[in-house]
């Protein structure tokens, strides 16, 4: 699938869309922290033709996100990869602490940790998903884990499948988790920091990370968050 091959509905105008859906203000609490997401809109459009499309959400599980996909007939899976990574590191640290002196005390490399983590995380067959919501996950993964995760995600995606990711243009002031409000709106939920923001990616670096993917599209929001949509 690619953007040029898939025809868009000609009747869809901005006014029609605005009338059709209640909009973020009507569907969430007035003080909710929401942002319009063109990347999400595009992501949903790409999977809209697939019957019972399979979507993987790499953030925490939320009722609203689950409902959103279930109501549209999609199959949704969730795996909070960042929290799993944090739990894994905590467990490894505890093992090291409890190990007898001189046994297992050698410094474990980041590469070994990344490989060990992926022995249990993201365990799905190849071509399992039509879409993956990665949110801002890649901003928080270290240099050894990131390429391995990308490799795994690429294998899990069906041909024509897409990944939606967000990249901060500067280090975020606080840690957020994300959930869907409607097909064009994402809610940002402030959360206790479970991982430190690793780095700010340049556009060139983002393209390099997704080097295996066929095509890409980038959207820049008012908050300077870049949304990148990549197709396998």
């Amino acid at each position: 699938m690619n953007w040029t091959a898939k025809a868009r509905a000609a009747t869809t105008s901005a006014v029609a869309v605005a009338r059709a859906k209640p909009g973020p203000v009507a569907s969430v609490a007035p003080n909710a922290n929401v942002r319009a997401s063109n990347g999400l809109k595009e992501f949903l459009w790409l999977i809209s033709d697939i019957e019972r499309a399979r979507v993987l959400d790499l953030g925490p599980v939320w009722q609203s996100t689950i409902n959103f996909f279930i109501e549209r007939g999609y199959r949704i899976s969730t795996e909070d990869l960042l929290r799993s990574w944090k739990d894994f590191l905590a467990t490894e640290e505890e093992h090291l602490r409890q190990a007898p002196v001189g046994e297992g005390g050698e410094r474990i490399s980041q590469t070994a940790l990344a490989d060990k983590f992926l022995e249990t995380a993201l365990q799905y067959p190849e071509d399992s998903y039509h879409g993956i919501l990665a949110w801002d996950l890649f901003d928080y993964l270290d240099g050894e884990l990131l390429p391995r995760v990308m490799q795994r995600l690429y294998k899990m995606l069906c041909a024509g499948g897409s990944v939606l990711a967000q990249f901060h243009s500067r280090a975020p002031e606080r840690f957020h988790r994300y959930r869907l409000v409607d097909k064009q709106t994402i809610e940002l939920l402030p959360a206790p920091t479970i991982a430190v923001h690793a780095r700010v990616f340049q556009n060139r670096e983002i393209l390099d990370i997704f080097g295996q993917f066929r095509t890409s599209k980038t959207f820049v929001g008012r908050d300077q968050v870049r949304e990148a949509l990549f197709l396998k």
Binding site: R54, P60, V61, Q63, I66, I70, R75, S77, T78, D80
Partner: peptide
């Protein structure tokens, strides 16, 4: 029904 804070690794 999913309460905030729940953790699920798997499909629904």
């Amino acid at each position: 029904g999913i309460d905030d804070g729940a953790r699920l690794r798997g499909n629904v």
